[in-house]
Design a binder for these strands. Structure first.
Lengths: 343, 343
DNA sequence: TTGTAGGCGTTATCAT
DNA sequence: ATGATAACGCCTACAA
């Protein structure tokens, strides 16, 4: 138990250390370190020796030691507002796909659409000295904002586009999406258009605004036909709100839903109580979730490039971390209107 | 840039260190460390002082340093087969909820139902010296198994129950669930019962086996009515397989689906082509996903305690990590048959 | 109950 | 191009 002062080779964990690799390769630890990290100043011959030694010993760096010594974490923090919304899963997957192979640990935080919770997560995760931050949208507390700024950690914002200046962001214009939705419905000859949104995050609001604006321009805006609730988006909620709206305003002839699950719920309830879709009411969803195209009738929706956003955001982060110049800090990934049977 | 040999207080990062906290509190660093970790041997008076100092300085431990010094990671690795399956989201959430407050970093790995990918993840994550492992099921490669064993890291298995010996697991009997499904359908007077499963993971197979066994006992088993595919479970796939099955065997009068999304797809297609549910065919799902109760007709399903499993598994891990004795290494969380309109 | 000494595995700095 | 030395911030062991 009492290891006398034997030299550098006493190991607590069973894992080989850089020292052992170095010794096996017949070089100094620092050279081994450099060789393994691909620092250019090491002779190719030595590099090979070291790599072989590392392989033989089955050496893996100790992330803790590395982080401590270099004052650099190896993690990238990703903060999303929800996981139950299939939405962000695709994005997360793509991020993983890009970052993991590069040796980054991806720390996922779910802030449940709560600004305060996001602030907490941020504070907690900062302790890990993450190398990068991948955040969702721009709506956060002042403290959060300050923390991010003060931390000086590279940051990429996902889902929305920067209206103001200077931030790296990958997403699409939520406002435009709302406008597109309205235009589509209008083009179908609808006159009484409603918007139903849940969660009330910035993006849902923005889409609502785009929708409203277009209706106003067309002289068809009616504030009574705007249903917003902070409750979490779900199939059940969609059905509920749909029924309420139809009861209160039987003349509604088109509804744009802030998320597909809501729209799916509406479709289901419509079927249950015999409301004809799209004859009586046109239903348009958002995000084009997997089930939507299989609904009865098939749900028209605005398809969003969630996976592409994740990938690009991660790639952007990579160039940021490499210290390379960023060609386009603002990347509009667009969206696509999928017209199916429900409109 | 060239910080002369000033003492312990030179900091590269802008963050306060334990030393500074200690100095502010007028104690030695180690006392501060103990105080902050809640080691009992510190005078309450000092604890308060230290905590105040830490608060004043906005001190947060450096996880890297802590990990290095204690040769103990602070992370728990969770490996799940899928994220797009809403299934595991609930479980992950629960795990987070339990582990994060205790200061554990939760590392999520998605192995996409691939044993090899799981092995890779395991190997990679081992570098972080995780304190614990939360794994899904028992079906993995020999190498994975050996790695787990050799690592000597506490491990809790989720979703299934240990048939053999000695493993800590939290889940329910997948076999029983399959039996329950068959019994229910049988009790409805159905004679031509089919099972449709995708993904073909161990648990899907197990449920199928339970289902089959019960049918065999009833003398009603027909291998032609067992549809298994390695493709990923989805609403679209469910509809597809349903249609195929009905075309090949128009006399089928009940179908048990390995996952709710498949069943939902079937319901949708049935509606589309006028197949009466449950009159002509009874449809039973599995997992009771959020949308199921809103389907038309409302989907009968077997509800699984995903959230409870996550919570309990995490709690079990906590007692394991605390070195406390485990009262019940095998925890059966059960499942519940929800009879609605589709059966 | 508190403190002293030393090391955890790696990398930065400065020489050579 | 390579190496010696000294941190990085914290914790384990032991001593007081």
């Amino acid at each position: 138990m009492t290891p006398s002062k034997n030299d550098k080779n006493t190991r607590t964990t069973g894992r080989p250390t850089l020292n052992e690799v170095a010794r096996l390769a017949g070089v100094s630890p620092i050279t081994a370190s450099r060789a393994l990290r691909g620092v250019s100043t090491v002779a190719t011959e030595l590099v090979e020796k070291v790599q072989k030694a590392a392989l033989d010993l089955n050496y893996v760096v100790n992330p803790a030691a590395r982080a401590l010594a270099s004052a650099q974490g190896h993690s990238v923090v990703v903060l999303v507002p929800s996981l139950s919304n299939l939405l962000f899963i695709d994005t997360l997957e793509a991020i993983h796909q890009v970052l993991r192979p590069k040796g980054f640990e991806v720390l996922i935080g779910n802030f449940h659409y709560s600004r305060d919770e996001e602030e907490n997560l941020l504070r907690n995760y900062m302790a890990y000295q993450p190398r990068g931050l991948l955040l969702t949208g721009f709506d956060r507390t002042e403290s959060s904002r300050r923390m991010i700024e003060a931390s000086n950690i590279p940051c990429v914002y996902m889902m929305e586009l920067d209206t103001a200046a200077g931030l790296n962001c990958v997403g699409f214009s939520q406002l435009n999406a709302g406008e597109t939705a309205a235009e589509h419905l209008l083009s179908r000859g609808r006159k009484r258009l409603a918007y139903i949104g849940a969660q009330l995050d910035q993006r849902t609001l923005l889409r609502g605004e785009g929708f409203r604006r277009t209706l106003q321009n067309a002289g068809l805006y009616d504030p009574d036909l705007e249903v917003l609730t902070p409750r979490a988006s779900s199939v059940g909620l969609g059905g509920e709100l749909f029924l309420q709206l139809m009861a209160a305003h039987p003349d509604v002839d088109a509804i744009f839903f802030g998320n597909d699950d809501l729209a799916q719920g509406a479709l289901l309830e419509a079927m249950r109580c015999g409301i004809k879709i799209p004859e009586q009411v046109a239903i348009l969803g958002f995000n084009d979730l997997p089930a939507s195209e299989h609904m009865v009738p098939r749900l028209s929706s605005i398809s969003t490039p969630r996976e592409a956003i994740g990938r690009r955001a991660a790639e952007l982060m990579l160039t940021l971390l490499a210290g390379n110049p960023v060609a386009k800090p603002v990347q509009d990934m667009g969206f696509e209107l999928k017209v199916r049977e429900s409109t």
